[in-house]
Design a protein around this nucleic acid. Sequence first.
DNA 1: CGTTTGGTTGAAATGTGTCAAACTTTGTGG
DNA 2: CCACAAAGTTTGACACATTTCAACCAAACG
Lengths: 261, 261
Amino acid sequence: MANTDACTTGDVILPEPFPPDHNPLVRKLESILALTDEERQALLALPMQVAVIRKDQDIVREGDRPSRSFVILSGFTCTYKASGEGRRQIVAFGIPGDMPDIQSLHLKVLDISVATLSPCSVGFITHEALWDLCMRCPRIAAAFWRETLVEGAVFREWLLNVGRREAYARMAHVLCELLVRLRAVGLVEDHACTLPITQVEFADALGASTVHVNRVVQELRADGLIELKGERLSVLDWEKLKQAGDFDPTYLHLVQERAAA
Amino acid sequence: MANTDACTTGDVILPEPFPPDHNPLVRKLESILALTDEERQALLALPMQVAVIRKDQDIVREGDRPSRSFVILSGFTCTYKASGEGRRQIVAFGIPGDMPDIQSLHLKVLDISVATLSPCSVGFITHEALWDLCMRCPRIAAAFWRETLVEGAVFREWLLNVGRREAYARMAHVLCELLVRLRAVGLVEDHACTLPITQVEFADALGASTVHVNRVVQELRADGLIELKGERLSVLDWEKLKQAGDFDPTYLHLVQERAAA
DNA sequence: CGTTTGGTTGAAATGTGTCAAACTTTGTGG
DNA sequence: CCACAAAGTTTGACACATTTCAACCAAACG
């Protein structure tokens, strides 16, 4: 029953110790529920193989049957699919704390590929260890489940975005979403953040062409809503950007909610 | 902490006994994992309030905070969102056995609405009962989780569909998907099935206009791929339809897979 | 039967894609 | 530190898929 772990076929993997206090996984779960000491211990005891992966590399590929999943410790990823004609659709951006392929815990064959958009440090955790964790800490299992549900909610909003908003609003919307999500993990200062996403990649996320994305970005700049240059995004007028993008953060389900008894 | 159960505000709800042997929920779970006697008992013992809802009614609405979820026992539903400008995007079709709002078990505020496309009979189950079931039968909890992950995989494929395929292929793709899913629950005979979905609704699912959907449907007919009239769909050339829709059923994760130990 | 719902058609308007070239910034090796 | 290459962005002109509007038709229905 050999599993294929494509991960970084032939790429540099530099195992390195990771400071447990800044563990993005622990931080994320703590934002969802108050961890008991036992739960925190179990999390920190998770055997995690840390790897540094350079830009523009596939971490996993459609069709893989991974025997482990990974947490993004730093950097950005994109999750994408390709059509038969070779057109690419990015279906999600991954930021620190995310586990873009945790679905493989249940679904053996991957239906998506995940690539790095910037140099990334990721922590691989075997499915065996994750299952063990879920069995011993049902509340953590529930939190993982919840996370995948939020991911699903984001897919739905993207569907609305791509299907029923025009390019200008679409672009504004993803920018709003990225800003809110990045803020939640402490990566936004003064309405500005690092965003290593090219216009080509935005185009693939919006279901649009590069040329059109470029024109829409220029419009957003001309309208005084954003500043976007290189890897830096500054939001100049948050209210107008939200309005332009028809953005309501409810679907991100960020508010601290109590897990049902 | 009063929860709002919008369900069918002011609509007919006719509780009626439901034959336990045909319980679509049990059937669905059994297609994923072999239930123990105890698990089957727990499932059949679930307190379920059955309701018959007529066509074109919202079962739940965006913003609701339901205290229960529901299983579709018979009939079709659509899950949708609306943009600020009032444009509608259908993000999923629900068929018997599906639980379109099971996410509300974890996410308190609904980010979607679910409406009936045909007369439906649905079974409401309180979150309390579902939680209890999940706690007592972890394998059933895992199966529920898995189901929501498959749902996510379908959203991703739809994103690719809407973002990167043109209308003709988009239409062919959803038809392929519906046929495969309906076959899995025994609702297809001879490559034909009942499909109570209007062209307006297909348009909302494809992110297209009604007029264009109509033209594309006519093309599919002219090309000899389908017959679609009223509520009846017949696939005349499955291979060509799959090809036209760039359809590969892997993402539906239907194959019988073993839940990890 | 008239009314409603869903489907069909044509013509004109338009958002967006394509192509191809030029420009700008970033990174790198000499 | 310059020079060159590579990557990313910007531009214009044109093509075209798709939308919009508006009317008409057909089947279902009470």
